[in-house]
């Protein structure tokens, strides 16, 4: 009697559970799985939005391997990711720690650090353009006041990526708040015990806080990597501001602002090579996938995932 009831309930649960997630499953099939499969198919074809796909085998991939701009864009994005991921995480950590320590005006400061995260990217990029101007920008002006010469941030290839990372650091608000929240979850008793053992603040941070928030950090690193590989709008805006004319396809001095998604976008919608763009998409997908897997595997060893 009781057993059959359970089974009925299980049946009902199976039915309802599935029914409730059905919208997502449909959405997944339509907006994730279908595009991914099609993207793979398109990557072996020659097509534009007007022309129908025509099978060309591995031609698009072969084309990319020989394409200088493809390698430039891949290099640019890898450099950007390699710089931005650790730096933004460290900056977020520092801000979170400061928010944790400082008691006066806590919610004010928290809002200040969070605010840029809600700033529309189009708007913030234009503001940063004013700040980075090599001749009259505020950043160089500040640097000159302290005796430095200043740099051509967005015009000299070695400095473009650090400049972009600086912009990204300004928008880390969400990460800061999340890390702060995670810090709040670390049990106070651990700190008290450490205090009794005479551990200093730094030691407490390293041995109690860090392990306590490690799982959150891993998640944030993964998100930062994915965001890094998708970095598009900022460079799109900067490039059109610098060239004054989108059709020139210019992407900063010696293409130093040509990020991978920007080149993918150009291939798809400006150069009208959607097949090539799809190949680029798949290469990106594989890179992100492999990197994330490696990261999760490695972190499994060190991080006690709750």
């Amino acid at each position: 009697m009781k057993k059959t009831k359970m089974t009925n309930r299980e049946k009902r649960n199976n039915k309802n559970g599935f029914l409730f997630v059905l919208p997502w499953i449909i959405g997944f099939l339509l907006f994730s799985l279908y595009p991914i499969i099609m993207s793979a198919y398109y990557s072996f074809t020659n097509f534009s939005a007007i022309k129908d796909p025509e099978w060309v085998g591995l031609d698009n991939y072969a084309y990319l391997l020989k394409d200088n701009l493809f390698w430039t864009s891949l290099k640019n994005t890898l450099v950007y990711v390699a710089l931005s991921v650790p730096i933004t995480i460290i900056v977020s950590l520092i801000l979170a720690v400061l928010l944790k320590i400082v008691k006066v005006g806590k919610s004010f400061f928290r809002s200040v650090f969070y605010m840029p995260a809600i700033f529309p990217v189009v708007a913030s990029t234009i503001v940063w353009l004013l700040i980075f101007d090599p001749i009259s920008g505020y950043l160089n002006r500040a640097l000159r006041m302290i005796g430095l010469t200043g740099e051509n941030w967005l015009g000299n290839p070695p400095y473009t990526k650090p400049a972009l990372v600086l912009m990204t650091c300004w928008g880390v608000g969400t990460t800061v708040v999340i890390i702060l929240a995670a810090m709040g979850d670390v049990s106070n008793e651990l700190y008290e015990a450490a205090e009794i053992d005479g551990a200093n603040t730094f030691k407490q941070f390293w041995y109690i806080t860090m392990p306590g928030i490690a799982h959150v950090l891993v998640y944030q690193v993964v998100l930062a990597i994915i965001d890094g590989f998708q970095y598009f709008t900022q460079v799109y805006i900067l490039c059109s501001a610098q060239s004054g004319n989108l059709s020139s396809g210019s992407a900063g001095t010696q293409n130093s602002l040509l990020m991978y998604p920007l080149y993918l976008f150009q291939n798809a919608f400006t150069r009208l090579k959607m097949g090539v763009a799809s190949s680029m998409a798949w290469i990106l997908f594989i890179i992100v996938f492999v990197l994330t897997l490696i990261l999760l595997k490695v972190s499994d060893r060190f991080v006690d995932v709750k």
């Binding site: 595009p35 991914i36 994915i226 763009a277 997908f285 996938f289």
Partner: peptide, 17 residues
């Protein structure tokens, strides 16, 4: 795992669709 799919990957087929 779908969180890991970059927007740019689905961009072209979605546009076509």
């Amino acid at each position: 795992s779908t969180l890991m799919i970059p927007y740019t990957v689905t961009m072209v087929p979605m546009y076509k669709m």
